[in-house]
């Protein structure tokens, strides 16, 4: 049980670390295209990199132009945010209220994990307790010796019949 707490904590930390640094595509253009949504009139609701409508082509050339003029990735994304508002970003930012979007799922899993641990502690009876219960339930039966022998024979028969 002791190990379990560390394992859980470890998994949580690793998961959070892995989740926290953004990277999918190697090129800068790709990164930007991944970070913003396509803003076409049809409201296609796609990430720019996945969109192939006319608007997306225009946006792409725009980004390329900005890249050539020496703007960094962050600056370009910022110009998009200034122009369209936060809704243009394909994922919530990792600050303020939006942090909740990122943390809650992992917090839920952590909470659930602790809950399960608690449950298991309650459900798993220590070995001593389990064996202590046994004689109490058995002693209530009459003519134990005979009937138990009979029952174990019946059990055997039933078990054999189960797989015929």
């Amino acid at each position: 049980m002791k190990h379990f707490r560390f394992i859980l904590a470890g998994i949580f930390i690793v998961a959070l670390c892995l989740a926290s640094n953004p990277a999918w595509s190697a090129t800068v253009l790709g990164d930007i295209e991944n970070a913003v949504m396509c803003k076409c009139d049809d409201k296609c609701g796609k990430v720019l990199i996945n969109c192939n409508c006319d608007t997306s082509e225009k946006t792409r050339t725009e980004i390329l132009k900005q890249l050539e003029s020496g703007l960094t990735k962050e600056q370009i994304i910022q110009t998009f945010v200034d122009k369209y508002g936060e809704t243009v970003l394909s994922a919530p930012t990792k600050e303020g209220f939006n942090l909740m979007a990122w943390v809650t799922p992992f917090a839920m899993i952590l909470g659930g994990g602790l809950g399960i641990r608690k449950l298991l502690q309650v459900w798993i009876k220590p070995k001593g307790e389990a064996t202590a219960e046994k004689p109490a339930s058995e002693s209530s039966e009459i003519s134990k010796e005979d009937s138990l022998g009979g029952y174990s024979n019946r059990l055997k028969n039933e078990l054999d019949r189960l797989e015929s």
């Binding site: 389990a130 046994k134 339930s137 058995e138 039966e141 009937s147 138990l148 029952y151 174990s152 019946r154 059990l155």
Partner: peptide, 12 residues
């Protein structure tokens, strides 16, 4: 042993 006890209990 535990399962057999359980089964015998049910049979009884």
């Amino acid at each position: 042993a535990k399962l057999e006890r359980e089964a015998v209990g049910i049979l009884e």
